[in-house]
Simulated assay, not measured.
Amino acid sequence: MTDPACALRITGLSHRFGSVSALSDVSLTVPRGSFTALLGVNGAGKTTLFSLVTRLYSNVSGSIEVAGHDLRRQPAQAMARLGAVFQSRALDADLTVAQNLAYHAALHGISRRRSRDRIAQVLAQVDLESRANDRVSALSGGQQRRAEIARALVHRPDLLLLDEATVGLDVKSRAEVLALTRRLIAAEGVSALWATHILDEIQPDDDLVILHRGRVLRAGKAAAIAGPAGLTQTFLALTGAAA
């Protein structure tokens, strides 16, 4: 199953909560160095998928491979190649930005000496170097999101998972977080799986996976999926007008 061209490969993944099917036979890939959008309305199964990839839930069917490492057989190696930003805030608001990142670095076995240099690096990448010693609670919503992305980058992952990373942000902050993610892909060579329900966050050249009611309806380049009707009309036709 190992494919060096893939940062993430999911094959035949299903998950249930009791009698409710959250995911059904989901397969998708995230090519290395790509921005892949996972598009779906609320309740489509995006967060469940992310929870399985990050091992918040255990997958009992199908397979998940992160940067060539099978998540079930090589969990430590797979998780070391992964950085995640969830909908809910993950930073300790009472600690400084640098303290939050240092704690994350320690969890990944990075020494204090090495982490200082790495924290300075990633904060510069997200334009927060001047806020390193500020408490997280003093940051704006957009700055907190950028700090969370910096935290996810500290251990140099191959893959970033961003689950509705712009939720709750104003238009300007949303655009800044999205642009930052795209710059990191270009500059750092990381890959990103960007879960969203906002169609205008997707560009024609992006890889796109449409997830609806736990099933993958389409996968490919956004422009090819959109076709002459455009992405909005195609998405509504696939998922139903009520979406």
Rank of each mutant, 00 (worst) to 15 (best):
T2W: 00
P4S: 12
A7Q: 07
L8K: 01
I10C: 00
I10P: 08
L13D: 02
R16T: 15
R16W: 15
F17M: 11
G18F: 06
T36I: 07
T36D: 03
A37H: 04
N42P: 07
T47F: 00
T54C: 04
L56P: 02
S58P: 08
G62I: 09
G62V: 11
G62L: 11
V66Q: 03
H69G: 09
R73S: 15
Q74C: 04
Q74F: 03
A76C: 05
Q77I: 01
A78T: 03
A78K: 00
R81M: 08
L82K: 02
A84G: 06
A84T: 14
F86E: 00
Q87E: 09
S88I: 01
R89D: 08
A90Q: 09
A90P: 09
A98S: 08
N100C: 12
N100A: 04
H104L: 07
H108G: 01
G109A: 07
R112P: 14
R114W: 02
S115P: 05
A120D: 08
D127K: 09
L128G: 06
L128A: 08
A132D: 10
D134T: 15
G142M: 12
R146D: 06
R151W: 03
A152E: 00
H155G: 05
L160M: 10
L160W: 12
D163V: 12
E164V: 13
G168R: 11
L169D: 03
R174A: 14
L178V: 10
T181F: 06
I185R: 06
A186H: 13
A186R: 07
A192N: 10
A192Q: 08
L193D: 09
T196P: 13
I198L: 15
I198D: 15
L199I: 15
D207P: 11
D207L: 08
L211H: 01
H212N: 12
G214A: 07
L217V: 07
R218Y: 11
K221L: 14
A222R: 12
A224K: 04
A224C: 06
A226H: 11
A229W: 00
G230E: 13
Q233L: 15
F235Y: 15
A237E: 12
L238N: 04
G240N: 04
G240L: 07
A242C: 06
